[in-house]
């Protein structure tokens, strides 16, 4: 009798262990590589720029620069980074609205078209941490 109970004990314990292992297994990471860097325009840090990494297929990752010109790419929600691969990049200025801006025109873009609408920027995101800086020139 006792050895049967022992066996059952053993089986249930190993099942328990297995399920724990499978729970831990669920915490896989997203496969994204963190990407950050600094955007400067004519040597000065450029705040409020939107840096968009557009892959040939899939969804773009987007980051905004802070006061120091530093951006950090977001893939979706709170998932940071971008999948390793080739990207076309466009950089535009972010204009913040307020509830009563009166519907005026968006201020003119200070970043030249060669960095956004006719972008020539191409970068590769490598597996692991990436630091990709952009030194823009207005002329």
């Amino acid at each position: 009798m006792l050895h049967i109970v022992k066996k059952v004990c053993n089986i249930s314990f190993s099942t328990f262990l297995l399920s724990m292992v499978s729970f831990v297994g669920c915490n896989s990471n997203s496969g994204m590589s963190p990407v950050s860097g600094k955007v400067t325009l004519d040597g000065k840090p450029y705040a409020n720029a939107q840096v968009r990494f557009v892959p040939a297929a899939g969804r773009p990752s987007i980051g905004m620069t802070n006061e120091e010109g530093v951006y950090r790419l977001v893939y979706i929600r709170d998932t940071l980074g971008a999948a390793p691969g080739e990207y076309k990049i466009d950089i535009t200025t972010v204009h913040q609205s307020s509830s009563d801006s009166g519907g005026g025109k968006e201020p003119p873009e200070r970043i030249p078209p060669k960095y956004n609408v006719r972008t020539e920027l191409k970068k590769t995101v490598e597996p692991g941490e990436n630091v990709i800086d952009f030194e823009l020139v207005s002329k």
Partner: peptide
């Protein structure tokens, strides 16, 4: 902007 992203021109406020 893609699903589930926030920030940038036109994507920061409910209006």
């Amino acid at each position: 902007y893609p699903i589930g992203t926030f920030g940038g021109s036109g994507n920061s406020n409910p209006y």
